[in-house]
Design a protein around this nucleic acid. Structure first.
Lengths: 166, 166
DNA sequence: GTCCATGCAAACCTTTTGCACTATA
DNA sequence: TATAGTGCAAAAGGTTTGCATGGAC
């Protein structure tokens, strides 16, 4: 049953992708896509499930995972992994479709930044290694401004001088 | 029972780290550390377990995980995640303790490279975001030289033009 | 009407934990 | 001898899969 839902341009793009592949455009797929497209940050599957529940959409976790897989394949959504033990998803239709991440080791905040230095890196590996870059991932872990201003100091764990072998 | 095992300088470093923390230096810890230190690539827990079995060391998986945790904390070993669904471990006592990774989407080969452009990136985020970098991670996914020379072409999946919304 | 998606629960896989026993220092 | 580690098996947590039912086209 095709209802008159609010189909945003982004969801329409996803619909086009599905149709190109001969796959059905279902309510559930549009609902999951809409949650991701209307979210601004990096959403976990749990968060997406919660948002769907708030919207009174009852969609199984398996369907959410299967739809996210399609969204990632369509390249409309990027899969992220900040080492939390689960993945996060972020749509790529923002002002800055290509960006990297700063991750605070103290509070977990994720900040986005752009780095055109990386184009130089990619050109170098193309020339020096004959490697054709397709996609990349740069994450810098450290202490964010707010935590630093709050006086947090990151403890230095580990050996002070790992090179000394005596 | 303290046997006369072949204790390399690297294992001695790990022993020092443990002693500094008042923790016992056990056979199992030395055995796991030795496998990691004598391995050149990026080892998974399964591979470490297999190597230990070949050496006739019977060590439980839990102990391997617990020892790897100590090795990572000591900063003698780096934890890697190439999106395979499990982690890999690499010792940091090579010629190039700091390096990034090129990962072939076709054959899975991992090549290491160095990028001093990243120091500039880190300085920039320090100035522009007040963020103090501690560690970083750069992975470039693409097609390696061998696969390209073998004629492999990466299929372009997804929408051709994700920006067009009509 | 055909084909595929959905939902539920079970399965899967890596990693973590509880607990009785053993080794280190 | 006190303290901490080990091994086993069970648990945990995220993700995937099998299968009967229901929806898209």
């Amino acid at each position: 049953m095709q209802t008159d839902r609010d189909v945003t341009p982004y969801i329409r793009l996803f619909g086009r992708y599905l149709r190109d592949l001969g796959l059905p455009v279902t309510q559930q797929r549009e609902a999951v896509a809409d949650v991701v497209f209307t979210s601004e940050g990096h959403r976990s599957v749990d968060e997406i499930e919660g948002e769907l529940r708030e919207r009174d959409e009852r969609i199984g976790k398996a369907t959410i995972y299967r739809t996210l897989d399609l969204l990632v394949r369509s390249r409309l959504v990027a899969e992220r992994d900040f080492g939390e033990g689960f993945k996060r998803y972020e749509h790529r239709l923002s002002d800055h479709p290509v960006h990297e991440h700063l991750i605070c080791l103290e509070c977990g905040k994720v900040t986005e930044f752009e780095s055109n230095e990386l184009y130089r890196v990619e050109n170098r590996v193309r020339q020096e290694h004959g490697f054709q870059p397709v996609r990349r991932r740069l994450e810098i872990y450290g202490l964010c401004k707010e935590c630093h201003d709050a006086g947090v100091e990151l403890p230095i764990e580990g050996l002070m001088c790992p090179i000394e072998t005596v």
